[in-house]
Design a protein around this nucleic acid. Structure first.
Lengths: 213, 213, 213, 213
DNA sequence: AATGAATGAGAATTCATTCAT
DNA sequence: AATGAATGAATTCTCATTCAT
């Protein structure tokens, strides 16, 4: 009545080059041309829908929107949660890259600000990200945790630089900043605040954490 | 929580006694006493559980916690959403009262601050309120809207007084303030920030909207 | 994304006597008149269908056959497996009673034989029982295990008496007997052997375990 | 496993070369060599897995184990059931050969016994065979039926010889013997009885059918 | 001819809501 | 008026089979 067969389903298959008569310099995996497209379509659809309606949307809706059968969706992501995770992790990775970029800004304060603005921008339109981050403290998934941890570290670099430059209060933790910005964006996003107004809100927060020396 | 409503009952129907042949010898229905008690018990249980586990808890759990049958629950609230609504509306009414109270504070700035702190306090422990408010912009229910509108007006009084007293920037809308505080509380609440730390976050926001001149 | 609410669902509710104006000597639980009937209907339907088609039949079929909705079925049995278990356990209990009865037979050999015949009789028409017993060694469920253990003990009493009376070989374990009878019945049942012929098969087995002294 | 068959392919279709303009310079298709190898690999994998985990294993697992794609598997066997059938039929053919061999034994009794022992031996480790045979009476497939019939005939030869030699009761049908041995093996196999003990069970059955005169 | 991606009809289970007692 | 049993649509996920590459 309860079995389990079936070895773990790898999300990204082995990279095989076509074994037959093909010449030298071809890309490393010409295989699965349209499978890759489907993967992308699913990801895209899921992003849109999760961002719009939250993570509670039935998964068939996602499949339908992606234009594939549910079976296909499940071939690419073994679980609804896995799909969700992939989206969030991808987005977190993007934010890490953004943070790294901002860390190169010679003006420490400017670096922090531009990061938070970009962060806010993404946050405002992607509910799912924030549902995820918001729940991070509660229902932590390992994969999440690692990337989130990583992101925190990067943001902390930005914050510390700004503190060292005397521009930001030293009693504000990175987590505080995230809660402020993230939460505000969440609320703003849901009550339909547009981008420009959102930036104003971020500016208020920035003013709040400014060193009042 | 956001789809079709088949029943059209008002949330709290007027309590009608059977209109036919009954006026003579029947008791005047003091039964309403313990019906009222049930109403209260349900409300209390729902508050606790929604606040604790979010609005996704199955409604039987609420009934069980309240110590009544589901049937009874449904007699009092025609819909899960109606129950939910009643809680939020009640709480909003409480906040309106708080706002009125704070408006009596001779120090305008102090009035605003103490309101926002109380607001944050409630928010930090009651997820449901803010799930609700957060979604208010999207899935507006008429009853919500009215009370929310009302609350906004009261907060605006506080804000305006502080602005007039030169203590708060005049380019910050009431709605902005709500988004900032509410969103932050939401995020903080979900990541398990305690009351003291939450007050620090509110203080940061207050610093951010302070008139810098 | 993954919650759990909901306290464990007891299969048999608390036994409550009607609290209102009812007289002295009423049965202990006049409540749930038709719920009990449904429970029975489900059990009956499941027995028939499992016995006929094996345990792989979709559960809606069982519900349909019982004339109830699936929801109802699940109210009575929290799991398909639980339903299955209940049937098997009930039947095993019946066999235990039979064994006890047979143990009263003054003729030890006769006691054993009549038990095995009854056993075979039930086995031949109830596939599920034997699917269950057959798998007992593999996918043991605790509840099964206990009752099965119990049954084995009772059968062993019968066997031992017959051995002591010099009628049965002493090198045949109870488990051996069960495998022989059960297995044969399973095969016979599936190939459509009728009751009379089945008894002949049992007699062959009995002949095989007879003490050849 | 027991419903509609949409495709109507024969289980092992004749291998046809394209009938059009091709006779001249094309190779004579020695390709069938490795196609045959695949056929064998699939059969082997299926045997192992079905015997180990029963016939409910998803077919992809079989393909994976065989080291071929599902597509390939389906090219060789139009249906899961067809694959299953082929295995059983092959095994039945093996048993027919064994029976023929045993029929050469000058000692009739010995011939029957050694056949049944070999039969039991195979049965004990190959669940699938007996799941299949067990269900043969219910869900008969034509191909099965023929081979099974054939096997019965051969066993009957063995039985009759033993009866004629006065060693075996004449009121035991071949089918009875099969039910006894097969069923016992099934049960024993599932409850994890090892080979030696299984032989003991077979001996009990043999004792049971021995001519008692 | 081989591959494995796509498909979609089920299957088990949950939960808001209705209804008989 | 209260109870909790019944209901069934909706949801997640599986797996035999088909089809494009």
């Amino acid at each position: 009545m309860s079995e389990d067969h079936r070895s773990v389903h790898a999300t990204s298959g082995a990279v095989v080059t076509a074994p037959s008569a093909d010449s030298a310099m071809c890309e490393p995996r010409p295989m699965r041309a349209d499978a890759a497209r489907n993967h992308e379509k699913i990801l895209l659809a899921a992003e849109e829908i999760f961002a719009l309606d939250g993570v509670t949307v039935p998964i068939d809706i996602v499949a339908e929107r992606a234009g594939v059968g549910i079976g296909t969706l499940y071939r690419h992501f073994p679980t609804k949660e896995a799909l969700y995770e992939e989206i969030v992790v991808t987005r977190l990775r993007g934010l890490i890259a953004t943070a790294d970029e901002c860390a190169k800004n010679p003006d420490a304060q400017e670096g922090l600000c531009s990061f938070l603005r970009e962060f806010a921008h993404q946050a405002s339109e992607k509910h799912d990200l924030f549902d995820a981050l918001g729940q991070a403290g509660i229902d932590i998934k390992v994969r999440f945790f690692d990337v989130l941890e990583e992101l925190m570290v990067r943001i902390d670099v930005l914050r510390q630089r700004a503190v060292d430059a005397g521009r930001v209060r030293d009693d504000v933790a990175t987590k505080d900043m995230l809660n402020l910005v993230m939460g505000t964006c969440h609320a703003a996003g849901q009550s339909g605040v547009d981008g420009a107004n959102l930036q104003r809100l971020v500016d208020i927060i920035l003013a709040g954490i400014k060193n009042p020396n």
